[in-house]
Design a protein around this nucleic acid. Structure first.
Lengths: 347, 347
DNA sequence: ACACCGATTGTAAGCGCTTACAATCGAGGG
DNA sequence: CCCTCGATTGTAAGCGCTTACAATCGGTGT
């Protein structure tokens, strides 16, 4: 005999009583509860997860699905850790376990997710790296499981998401540059198919328009999260009849390559080319002159996501006001010396 | 009626047959199996995880416990994606799900782990960030659950671990420096209580001794994973009667601060101070002169850990040779220009 | 034609826990 | 002293799936 039955026999009570005592059911004599708790503690007993889930129809755990990139870099980790920390804290406070579910880039993320959902392995889900059109969202919506996405998509709107305020960032960046007299502003965007790339690019366009600046396809540079696009970007920006005088970077590491190329050409960041980075990234923190960038709390992003999820889970929903939440987390500008007034071109 | 019963009724067979068909039991008519598979596919059926686990006494999932640091300065955080990728690939190939279990630094990691173990939430565990004396290892050993640690500990020896070959790294580094004529070699070590710090320090001592070099406590600098210890290190090394001429870094980011301080003092990395980093970190890659460092595949580390775990799980053990595995993953030297022959001191 | 056998399927007993419902007990009311 | 009621505990029916064991069926050997 094992599990709860053993405990029950040991104490000379029924399994029902033990179960009640352990689960905080009020219909138990307080003295009995103490006995049970003590015995459980002493024997290191904890209810079997599977049995409990089966009986209750609830797992008390939520999944955070992430995708593993071959090129995984340290600051993906950095991003990840911060966000997870925020989520974990909130969820734990409500008695929920956070299970991070890593999906290999090589396997179909839809199928991956579907397995966890249809097997009822988690009570709720948080998705990262949302695609512009993301079948996973339809899957979750139709399955009825509570979920939240980190990042918007175009797949319908009846669901909660938390995203960075790309629009706000872009507005601030462009305005700052315009105020410095820049009229030709380049931008880098991610070359993958995640939705944030499209949003970033759109915000770029919108803000140029707002300031009456012309849009030039040639000033948009798709980049990956690595520093080695600097050459082509710098050359692409400057070696043209109407060179840009500023650039806004989606991936801040790109600044490294840009700095390097500028140096090779005898130019200086902040003077000959204004540069604004997106998110203060570790590997860029040490560049001189310091990169003007935006900053945010990863933990806050995580807690916001977790709260939005809790608001949808029957178990916890009553503690939260609104059902569906769609939030853009604002970033704050961290002024550096990588941008400044337009430098009059010589020649 | 739901779940397998519904499927069974739909097909006019018993639940037993459906179960068998779905689980690859050979005692099913192939035609029947196809029918079942087809129907399951069509109805999007997947066996309820909890029920299945309860019936089988097995979850088909393994946990990877990581710790979340407020300041994200642990080693796990720039390890994570790569290692998880390796693990996930191996585990998935054996039909196991990888659940990453994040434990807040603020909560007791022993209790955290215990819950998952005693609730039978996973069939196996991988631990990261092993302490020198780690109660978790005793817990896992006594609980009988298969497990592997990423990093050694002093807590007994009857278990599998995978670790970096700190000794090999240190031997190579010291030998390289000695060959360059260095006799006074400093080192940085992590300031936390993870076991790798002690190992690194010990290997340092051993290798000095091997080359007949004296050991000087003053040349050991505890550091965190951030760049700003450079000043105190550089000054501490040089402003003394018998300055060191080389330094080996545990956290490679320290190089950034060191480079900066050296520059301030009009000194040059590689000439005035030889620097060898431990693991090629992204944020250091762009330093000039390039930092001589060591490199490894995080994926390989992950696959090694996963394999070592599989070797202990009854389900998969037969596919693997040895039971207990204790491996040191070697790193390879990536020569840069941050180290070289001792530069004769002027004055 | 009959016992026997392998292939296939059905029956039903759990897996360990929760929980609706029944049972018990002592106290207070009439 | 009997009845009612609240507090507490026990009984037992599942939760959805697996699997030992029994049952069925067509084919074989003799």
């Amino acid at each position: 005999m094992r599990g709860i039955a053993r405990l029950a026999r040991e104490l000379g009570v029924s399994t029902a009583t033990v179960s009640r005592a352990l689960n905080g059911n009020p219909n138990v004599n307080e003295a009995t509860r103490q006995k049970v708790l003590e015995a459980a503690q002493r024997l290191g007993y904890a209810a079997n997860q599977a049995a409990r889930s089966l009986a209750q129809g609830v797992t008390r755990s939520v999944g955070f699905m992430i995708e593993l990139d071959q090129e995984s870099t340290t600051s993906t980790d950095y991003f990840f850790m911060g966000v997870v920390e925020g989520m974990q804290a909130v969820l734990a406070a409500h008695g929920l376990d956070l299970l991070v579910l890593p999906c290999a880039k090589s396997q179909d993320n839809f199928t991956f997710l579907q397995r966890f959902v249809s097997r009822g392995a988690v009570d709720g889900l948080i998705l990262a790296e949302t695609r512009r059109i993301d079948r996973r969202i339809d899957l979750l919506k139709s399955s009825g499981i509570p979920f939240v996405t980190l990042g918007r998509s175009d797949s319908g709107s009846g669901y909660s998401w938390i995203d960075l305020d790309f629009e706000g960032v872009m507005a601030t960046a462009v305005e700052r540059l315009v105020r410095h007299g820049h009229r030709r502003i380049a931008v880098t965007v991610p070359s993958n198919d995640a939705n944030y790339g499209a949003i970033f690019a759109q915000a770029y366009r919108d803000n140029l328009a707002r300031h009456g600046l012309g849009f030039d396809e040639a000033l948009i540079f798709p980049t990956r999260r690595r520093e080695d696009d600097g050459d082509s970007i710098v050359d692409g920006i400057l070696d043209r009849p109407d060179p840009a005088t500023a650039i806004i970077l989606f991936y801040e590491v790109t600044a490294i390559g840009i700095y390097r190329r500028l140096a090779e050409r005898g130019l200086e960041p902040g003077r000959d080319l204004s540069i604004i980075g997106f998110r203060g990234e570790e590997s860029v923190r040490f560049l001189m002159p310091q990169v003007t960038c935006f900053q945010m709390s990863l933990q806050d992003l995580g807690t916001a996501a977790a709260r939005a999820l809790l608001a949808q889970m029957p178990m916890t929903a009553r503690a939260f006001p609104s059902g569906i939440v769609q939030t853009r987390v604002p970033l704050s500008l961290v002024p550096g010396e990588s941008d400044g007034p337009v430098c009059p071109r010589e020649g």
